[in-house]
């Protein structure tokens, strides 16, 4: 049983912590780079790219 809810009785339904997905290498890189932002450290936050590249035909 998970301990997310703490109290003085047993609840009807259990609260189950979701499986935490392993952090991807991409996420780890972006998190680490963010901490060092400045100087020559700058990066593309890939999930935040909103534009699409449409080359003129």
């Amino acid at each position: 049983m998970s301990d997310l809810l703490k109290g003085n009785f047993k609840t009807k339904n259990e609260v189950v912590a979701p499986e935490v997905a392993e952090e991807t290498l991409e996420d780890r890189f972006e998190r680490t780079a963010l901490k060092r932002l400045g100087g020559s450290i700058a990066f593309v936050s890939k999930k935040k790219v909103m534009w699409e590249f449409k080359p003129k035909s």
Binding site: L4, L5, K6, G7, N8, T11, V15, P18
Partner: peptide
């Protein structure tokens, strides 16, 4: 009484 410490756990809305 039950306590859910959302601030401590930070498990998201599903939890």
């Amino acid at each position: 009484v039950q306590v859910y410490d959302e601030n401590a756990w930070r498990k998201g809305d599903a939890v």
